[in-house]
Nucleic acid binder design. Structure first.
Lengths: 144, 144
DNA sequence: GTAGGTAGTGTTATGTAATAACATACTAGG
DNA sequence: CCTAGTATGTTATTACATAACACTACCTAC
C-alpha cells in the first residue's frame, strides 16, 4: 500500500509531473480503502483533520491519477479505486462484488484484440475500451 | 423506427406489462434521436407541448425500457440510446463515436464466454457485464 | 533580476444526474 | 364495493461534476 505511493512518486519523477500534496492525499485514501470509493466520501475524508477540501481539488487529483493509471474510475456507479498493477496501463476489466463491494482486476489482453476486430468489421476504430462486471467474488461465494 | 414502438407494444403484451403513455413517449423520443441522449434533455423534450414532465417520470420509464432491453444506458457518460436489436437481450457492446456521437452496437457473443472464464479463474462469478468503447466510426473516418 | 509562461491549487458558484417520500389514479379479482 | 397491485404526479432533496476566476510557485529567457 505504501508501495503504491512510492510507485506514484517514481512514475511522476520519470515523466516530469508533480506529485503534489492533494494528489498524494487522494491516492493515500484510496490505497487504504478496501473498496472503491465515491467522490464525495473521498472529499469529506480528505477534509478530515486538515483544512477543508472542496470538490474540484479532489476531482482534479482523480483525473490526474486516472491518467497515470494509478486509479480507475468505475463507470457503472461512479466510484474510484486504486490500481494494483500501477503504472503500465494494460487493458483490464474491473469486476465488482455485489456483496462485499470489493473490486477485482482481471486482465483481458486476449479479449481486447477480438473486440477491436469486431469493431473494425463495422468500420469502427476503437481508442478506448471499458469492460466492467458485477457478480459475486470467491470469498462471498464461500461464505454463503 | 415505428417498428421499435410496435415491437415494444408486442413485447409488453406478451409479458403482461403496460406500455403506458410516458413509457411510449420516452421511447419515441429516443427512437427519433440519431445519438444517445442525456436524461435531462429527454426530460425537457418530453415536456415540450404537453404537460411538464418531471425527472422521476422519465427515470422510471428509462428503468422500465432498460429492463426490457429496448433501451441501453451508456455508463461512460450517463446517456441513453434506443436498441435496434430489441427484445432478445443478447450481450452487446456499445461503441460511441467521438466525432458524430452516434452509437454502434456490436455483438460480443464470442467474447462474453472468455471474460466469464477469466473471471471464474479468479473465483468471480459474473452476473452482469458492461462493454463500452470510444473511437471513430466509419463515416467520420471517411469524412476526415 | 524581472517579465512572462506554465502548472497547479483555492474558492465560489452553478450545472447536471438521480432518487426519496408521499399523494393520487387506474384496474382487475374477490 | 373494496382492496391489492401497478403506475403516475409532485415536491423536495441528495449526489455527482465542472465552469470560471483569483492566486501562488516555479522555471527560463532575456
Amino acid at each position: 500500500m505504501h508501495d503504491l505511493i512510492r510507485q506514484a512518486e517514481a512514475l511522476c519523477q520519470r515523466s516530469g509531473m508533480a506529485f503534489t500534496a492533494p494528489r498524494r492525499r487522494v491516492l493515500e485514501i484510496l490505497a487504504a480503502s478496501e473498496t472503491p470509493m465515491k467522490a464525495y466520501d473521498l472529499i469529506s475524508k480528505a477534509g478530515e483533520g486538515g483544512q477543508a477540501t472542496k470538490p474540484p481539488t479532489v476531482y482534479r487529483a482523480l483525473d490526474f491519477l486516472c491518467q497515470l493509471g494509478l486509479v480507475h474510475r468505475i463507470e457503472q456507479d461512479a466510484t474510484f479505486v486504486a490500481c494494483n498493477h500501477a503504472g503500465h496501463s494494460h487493458p483490464m476489466a474491473l469486476f465488482v462484488c455485489n456483496t462485499c463491494l470489493k473490486a477485482t482486476e482481471v486482465a483481458y489482453d486476449e479479449v481486447a484484440p477480438i473486440l477491436e476486430k469486431a469493431a473494425e468489421m463495422q468500420g469502427f476504430h476503437l481508442t478506448r475500451l471499458v469492460v466492467e462486471g458485477r457478480g459475486q467474488c470467491q470469498d462471498c461465494a464461500l461464505a454463503a
